[in-house]
Design a protein around this nucleic acid. Sequence first.
DNA 1: GTCAATACTTTGTAATGACATATTGACGTA
DNA 2: TACGTCAATATGTCATTACAAAGTATTGAC
Lengths: 247, 247
Amino acid sequence: MPEPLLRVPLDRTSPVPLYFQVAQQLEHAIEAGALPPGTRLDNEIQLADDYGLSRPTMRRAIQYLVERGLLVRRRGVGTQVVHAKVKRQVELSSLYDDLTAAGQRPTTQVLVNTVVPADGTVGTALGLPAGTAVVFLERLRLAGGEPLARMRNYLPTELVELPTAALEERGLYQLLRAAGIHLRVATQVVGARAATATEARLLGEARGAPLLTMSRTAYDDSGRVVEFGTHIYRASRYSFEHTLVGR
Amino acid sequence: MPEPLLRVPLDRTSPVPLYFQVAQQLEHAIEAGALPPGTRLDNEIQLADDYGLSRPTMRRAIQYLVERGLLVRRRGVGTQVVHAKVKRQVELSSLYDDLTAAGQRPTTQVLVNTVVPADGTVGTALGLPAGTAVVFLERLRLAGGEPLARMRNYLPTELVELPTAALEERGLYQLLRAAGIHLRVATQVVGARAATATEARLLGEARGAPLLTMSRTAYDDSGRVVEFGTHIYRASRYSFEHTLVGR
DNA sequence: GTCAATACTTTGTAATGACATATTGACGTA
DNA sequence: TACGTCAATATGTCATTACAAAGTATTGAC
């Protein structure tokens, strides 16, 4: 199958790496339907030649798309398009970011912003002895005027200043980033349970209504625990969606 | 910080790639605590030299661990250990595999194994016109003798033979793999809702009890839809756990 | 005509060399 | 002392080359 892709020439003066330029061009071609699922790409030597690149650079571009689930490669066979559109890799993002990306314009009510002694669960999650003072946030997140989630976060006190006004304007992760804290890894658990009376009232659901629960521990560049959160979402208005890539 | 790691020499005759051997050694050292979070590794040139490898190979080993969230690199600074233990990357696995890996010994009851016409939802998910005949499976998964999930799967008829006896012995994904079908990409949505009376009875929960829901569309090597499933899990006994890696 | 050995294609792994760029810290000067 | 500059250090990008291994197709023998 020939590839008469009209290609934008690469910009070697750009700070954007060549492999990334190529990967993006391919990704656009796939998303635009120019390379429908099942298409076999030329072999990497040929492609490298077409683009005027070396084979490692071309491989790197292809590898990037393989890892994102757009392409599949098999030795002796070739490279094929698997999937036209990837929702977005599971990534370390916040609810605020997700909603903003979806054009939802989220708002936040800060219910609690104080310092409390850590209980056992919070202590172990943050790697601090129980009883240590930690920042405790409780926030209500709304989208389109409707309550969506109640979020509870615990952070080490010395980490960053979090004024309530700022938290009503921006997401927690945005504020952390602005403070030069780079989140790198997180472990999270997603489950479900029934709403208590208080939770139901807050979220505008019936008592006993099913809620999605998510608890997350997020780590820094340097391995420090930055944040531990336990959140509840209205199951009627929210779900977690992502793309998995195998092998 | 020096690195007097006692290293197993690399096996150049092994079919296991050198970069992977190195990555595993580092991973073990990190998990064993020999390289606690925050440790700065030697620079990659030094490391390559220590192992007797070229820089690209050493880079590849490090890169692998960076992508899994164990290490962090910053240009001009160096490579640091972030996190000692990674739960397990979010991967394209089946409930059966997950339970087996956790040592739970799952069992399966096949409730329905038949061919039905696809309704609208199933049709669009599988990319077939509504009304097309598709294989319909309904299975009850138990762990430790207790019901855990009810799973409904829809598959194209021509894909593979799925005898009920085989489905009681093995997981669906195992059977697909055995038939030479390589799952590559999947998109899934995790939510929650209340159990209907029938569902509650089947799973041994009270009516209205919160359930975790997961629907997944899984794709082949070549981009074909292999399977569409809508599953419900007892929230009291199951949750989704994974590690996210940022940036 | 069938089956097995072989050749070819394509990706996978690895080494070597070169230059670019971000970061830190030290040094020197105002 | 404060600030800017520069050097040292580390990772990031890219090219070139060679060989290994897997999968497919072809060819040849029986």
